[in-house]
């Protein structure tokens, strides 16, 4: 297989988008599940244990760069694709009534993605950057009993909870971010299956419904956390 021509062909490019996109969705499902622990245990122990596990697990160590690469490819290719697609219509329509034939999300994947990019940037700065590199007084180590054994770990919960408790702005940013993600995925999920060819007239409806469900789960799952802190504290 001549890789060059494949990755440059429209279908090949889209193939990369879908594989990376699905990979990101898988990652986010795990990520979201852990995050939800934030609102089920106000002591923060559950979340801290999970975060600690994630931070120390060797498997995750390997996955991290892959994830970064996935993001990079997804974003890079999304830019290439979007430019290419915009070029395909040099003269625009005066009147274009697209609302009748497609969903808003499907038409605005790049815009959604770009906003997600900003959101992810903020997110990485808020937590990942601090945990990994910059450090933060809130992250001061604590000891949590894990299966009867005391384990020392960073208080990630404090970092997160404090941000959400203290900043309404960040709460709103994160709520919006969750919704954007939900929208992106509500098209992206089924679109990815279509792109890899896993679709037919029967699966079509199922995948579409599933995409809406996953999109909704993401939107709710991610925004319920800041919402929880916003309302409760």
């Amino acid at each position: 297989m001549s890789k060059g021509s494949f990755l440059n062909a429209s279908v090949g490019r889209k193939f990369l988008m879908s594989i990376t996109g699905l990979f990101l969705i898988m990652f986010l499902l795990v990520h979201m599940s852990i995050n939800l622990l934030l609102i089920f245990d106000d002591s923060g122990d559950l979340f801290n244990i999970a975060a600690h596990f994630m931070a120390t697990n060797p498997f995750i160590k390997i996955i991290e760069p892959v994830l970064a690469l996935g993001f990079a490819i997804h974003i890079l290719w999304s830019i290439i694709i979007t430019i290419q697609n915009m070029r395909a219509r040099p003269v625009k329509y005066l009147k274009s009534n697209q609302a009748v034939n497609s969903t808003w999300a499907s038409r605005n994947m790049f815009i959604l993605g770009a906003m997600l990019f900003v959101y992810i940037g903020i997110h990485l700065y808020n937590f990942w950057w601090k945990m990994k590199f910059a450090g933060d007084p809130l992250l001061e180590h604590i000891t949590v009993m894990q299966a009867g054994v005391p384990v020392e770990m960073e208080n990630a919960y404090a970092l997160v909870a404090t941000l959400f408790k203290e900043s309404v702005i960040y709460d709103i940013v994160y709520i919006i971010g969750g919704v954007l993600l939900g929208l992106h995925v509500s098209h992206g999920f089924w679109s990815a299956f279509q792109t890899i060819g896993f679709n037919n007239h029967i699966w079509r409806k199922r995948l579409f419904v599933l995409a809406q469900v996953i999109g909704a789960i993401f939107a709710i799952g991610f925004s319920v956390i800041p919402l929880y802190f916003l309302i409760k504290f």
Binding site: S10, Q84, A88, S102
Partner: peptide
């Protein structure tokens, strides 16, 4: 691709 059509983003329009 060669003729300058865009790629599919599955909008379904």
């Amino acid at each position: 691709d060669e003729l300058g059509f865009g790629g599919c983003t599955n909008t379904g329009a």
